[in-house]
Design a binder for these strands. Structure first.
Length: 428
RNA sequence: UCCCCGAUAGCUCAAUCGGCAGAGCGGGUGGCUGUUAACCACUAGGUUCGAGGUUCAAGUCCUCGUCGGGGAGCCA
């Protein structure tokens, strides 16, 4: 593989890949080749390869699939430090038509229509490599902290955070099923069984959101911990986010550099994070000129304004219960607030985690379900968790794409997932 | 669902007050033995998103529609 070539200097290798770009000076061709693991410049000199191969190279179009043999040579002029001196070229396929994605810039509509080809670019490879590292680090961190992975179903009955934004599907003779908006309620059941658990998978929101922070299908990692309170919950979130950022910094420096990410902004991401109460946050925003009234949830602008006041992630704690989900535990001293937290990423990226201590009192939970007008019958098994050995517990959901977008410094969340699903786009 | 913006060559865009449809990249041909989104010369390439309307004249102005982008609400 190309990424291993620096340790193959002065040896002959065979590379199977695609031609990323080509330059030529008449008697010498420079082929930029990629194989999925990296990029290298292959140099073909007339006379050092059979003539028919030299002229075949001249006719290659971008993204031709080729097999090259040659000598790996150290060269200070090459970005990766090595080049390939070609001795043989086999053309597997020369494209049947001009490759649609040119070397210069493209519009976003065109790129999204060609997402299946766009992912071949170096920038997309860097982003998806970082995404993989984020996910890997989460799993490693939770596994090493004693968590059990207990995945939740994607097809569910009418249960979730609320009736809005559910995708419906026909489910045999049982009527409607819904694509999961969250695995949390299942994670709570699993926490009662196994103590420390998490689920991780795609979730679906049929919200008609059209912003740089929203997808209709996104991946969420949702830890749930028995006997953890609101403060334990935030400590876990802080440790997880720090581990993820460190994992990316340790293993993906090259990718971050390719994305021209400001590394110092990431190197600052160490404990402790900032904490601010909802009450104080509203007061601060009003002082900064926002017209947010007390009692409302923050809009995108408010969130951006707030995060710009801090150089590290900030927890916003204890929102009014009327803007939060029914399962959040009531504040012990303020019955208008709940024990929840949103973790806002800096540099204007905003909410990456939403978490809370869960309501473990059966009567209070029933009251909240009725207040919200939710179908009580659908929550039968969930209420059982408060009937049979109820226990204080807390958990949170972290949106993987939002974390990746923040760490990579992306303008839009759609680049943080291989195949983005947005309200007006289902293909490719 | 609402608000704003856009649609012109394969791609990214320009076209002044309503007055001949342009450039760069990509393609083709030729040149070049060290190029780094290579360069140089020549060349082909257009139903200006669709349907109406105003006008001597519409890419440009008006109406409706289609598609897309940005944002709001909601959220991770």
């Amino acid at each position: 593989m190309i990424r291993d070539l620096p340790s193959w200097v002065d040896r002959e290798v065979t590379l199977k890949g695609w031609m990323y770009n080509k330059r030529s000076s008449g008697k010498i061709h420079f082929l930029q080749v990629r194989d999925g693991s990296g990029f290298i410049q292959a140099v073909m000199v007339k006379g050092e390869v059979p003539d028919e191969q030299f002229s075949a190279a001249k006719g290659l179009w971008l993204e031709a699939s080729i097999i090259l043999t040659g000598l790996v040579r150290k060269d200070d002029r090459a970005p990766s430090g090595v080049e390939l001196s070609v001795t043989g070229l086999e053309v597997v396929q020369n494209p049947v038509d001009e490759y649609p994605i040119a070397k210069k810039e493209h519009g976003i509509d065109f790129l999204l229509d060609h997402r299946h080809l766009w992912i071949r670019s170096a920038r997309q490879k860097a982003i998806l490599t970082i995404r993989e590292r984020v996910i890997w680090t989460c799993r490693e961190f939770l596994h090493n902290s004693g968590f059990l992975l207990v995945d939740s179903p994607l097809l569910t009955g009418a249960i979730g955070e609320g009736a809005d934004g559910l995708f419906e599907v026909e489910y045999f003779d049982l009527g409607k099923a819904y694509l999961a908006q969250t695995g949390q309620l299942y994670a709570e059941a699993a926490a009662a069984a196994f103590g420390k658990v998490y689920c991780f998978g795609p979730t679906f929101r049929a919200e008609k959101s059209k912003t740089r922070r929203h997808l209709t299908e996104f991946w969420m990692i949702e830890p749930e911990v028995a006997y953890a309170d609101h403060h334990d919950n935030m400590a876990l979130q802080e440790a997880l986010v720090c581990a993820v950022v460190k994992g990316v910094l340790d293993h993906c420096k090259k990718e971050l550099e390719l994305l021209e990410r400001d590394l110092s902004a990431l190197e600052r991401i160490t404990p402790p994070f900032y904490h601010i109460s909802y009450d104080d946050a509203v007061a601060l925003l009003q002082k900064l000129g926002s017209d947010i009234p007390y009692g409302d949830d923050f809009g995108g602008d408010d969130e951006t304004l707030l995060t710009k006041q801090f150089d590290k992630p900030v927890f916003v704690e204890c929102y009014p219960k009327k803007v939060k989900a029914f399962y959040m535990k009531q504040h012990p001293e303020r019955d208008d607030l709940v024990l929840c937290d949103d973790l806002l990423a800096p540099e204007g990226y905003g909410e990456i985690i939403g978490g809370s201590q869960r309501e473990d009192n059966l009567d209070l939970l029933l009251k909240r379900i009725r207040e919200e007008g939710l179908p009580e019958s659908s929550y039968g098994w969930y209420l059982d968790l408060r009937r049979y050995g109820s226990f204080p517990h807390s958990g949170f959901g972290m949106g993987i794409e939002r974390v990746v977008a923040w760490i990579c410094g992306l303008q839009h969340i759609r680049e943080a997932i291989p195949w983005p699903r947005t309200i007006y786009r289902l293909n490719p």
